[in-house]
């Protein structure tokens, strides 16, 4: 923690939190016609709030199109936000101007899903991992290659790989390269966008263990996005479930799995095929295929509990138990 001045204290009442997201919105305009008039918005991220404590892991789960990746990219300032506040280390990074972004680029790094497209195929591993250091003028020449070699060894690769190209590595090794690049600038927050979902089962567990080890070693804070609940449960301290741009449930990892409150969370948990051999039908109703949006609860169309009230009123995210919030009228 940097020595906090009085001004900073004012800005950041909760000093424990590295990241404090308040009412974040990212809407994409839908443009139509010759003049490209905006006729509406896709509310990819719609009014989400959460906090991430320094040194912890925050897991964000959701299906494709739930807005989890958009949320991550908005927080990393790769996509412009429509509204809200993102306090990082006591500073609202959404209000930073383009020229001031370098500051947060050093402190927030990303690990991507696809180990094939996230590494430039024309660059050597050394160049890839070393580029952030070069751009921020942290190291050059011999020092640079020494640091790159150290980074590679930290993530379980050999320093002798420095002149090889990404296509000479397997998926798991490529993901390690991506992690080494993300750690190069010694960031405070690492945003992991589905880092293991493209990997083989036997490699997945290696990478998850590696991420955990690195967190302990460097006191990293993770913002971990995944669609696989079992992965998220393993790595996260707090888990949030996102559905159509909104957080529908947020709770400490153990509480969420032991006592899921939102029907969507329950549906997700029941849909995971468990590696226990018994033939059973899952409780997924085919009726909920069409997800038509109504004025009320976004999950209304698929919800087994929904009634008239739900279709007209949007449930707020309320604390139902200590530290356990859910957005549902029926719990």
């Amino acid at each position: 923690m940097p020595p906090a001045g009085t001004q900073k204290d004012m800005k950041n009442k909760m000093n424990d939190y590295l990241l404090n997201v308040e009412n974040l919105k990212t809407w994409f305009p839908i443009k139509k016609g010759l003049l490209r008039k905006t006729v509406g918005h896709v509310k990819a991220v719609d009014d989400i709030s959460f906090q991430i404590a320094a040194g912890s892991t925050f897991g964000l789960v959701g299906e494709s199109g739930s807005g989890k990746t958009t949320a991550a990219r908005t927080i990393a300032r790769l996509i412009g936000a429509t509204g809200g506040k993102v306090d990082f280390n006591g500073e609202n990074i959404l209000s930073l101007r383009q020229s001031e972004l370098r500051k947060i680029r050093k402190d927030i790094s990303m690990v991507f899903q696809d180990p094939y497209s996230s590494l430039n195929p024309r660059m050597t591993v050394g160049t890839i991992v070393g580029e952030p250091l070069k751009i921020h003028k942290i190291a050059t020449g011999a020092e640079l290659s020494e640091r790159v070699a150290a980074l590679l060894e930290k993530v379980g690769l050999s320093a002798s790989h420095i002149n090889r190209y990404p296509h000479e590595f397997s998926g798991g090794q490529r993901q390690r390269i991506g992690i080494a690049r993300a750690l190069a600038l010694e960031p405070k927050l690492v945003i992991c966008d589905e880092p293991v979902s493209a990997l083989d089962v036997s490699i997945q567990s290696q990478i998850l263990n590696l991420l955990k080890d690195l967190q302990e070693q460097f006191n990293l804070t993770y913002f971990f996005i995944a669609h696989d609940l079992s992965v998220v449960e393993f790595i996260s301290d707090i888990v949030a479930v996102m559905y159509l741009g909104k957080i529908v449930e947020i709770a400490p990892s153990a509480a969420l799995y032991e006592n899921p409150l939102h029907p969507y969370t329950k549906l997700l948990l029941s849909a995971i095929p468990k590696p226990v051999p018994e033939r059973k039908k899952t409780a997924v109703s085919a009726a909920g295929l069409e997800t038509e949006l109504c004025a009320g609860c976004p999950f209304y169309g698929r919800c087994p509990l929904g009634d008239d009230f739900c279709s007209k009123n949007a449930p707020p995210l309320e604390e139902k138990a200590s530290g356990h919030k859910a957005a549902c009228f029926k719990t």
């Binding site: 990219r73 990393a76 790769l78 972004l101 370098r102 680029r105 050093k106 927030i108 790094s109 990303m110 991507f112 899903q113 696809d114 497209s117 996230s118 590494l119 430039n120 580029e131 952030p132 751009i135 921020h136 991506g178 690049r181 190069a184 600038l185």
Partner: peptide
């Protein structure tokens, strides 16, 4: 491709 996004994310 993600590698361009990655480059943007570390301030290229």
């Amino acid at each position: 491709r993600d590698y361009i996004l990655a480059a943007q994310s570390y301030g290229c």
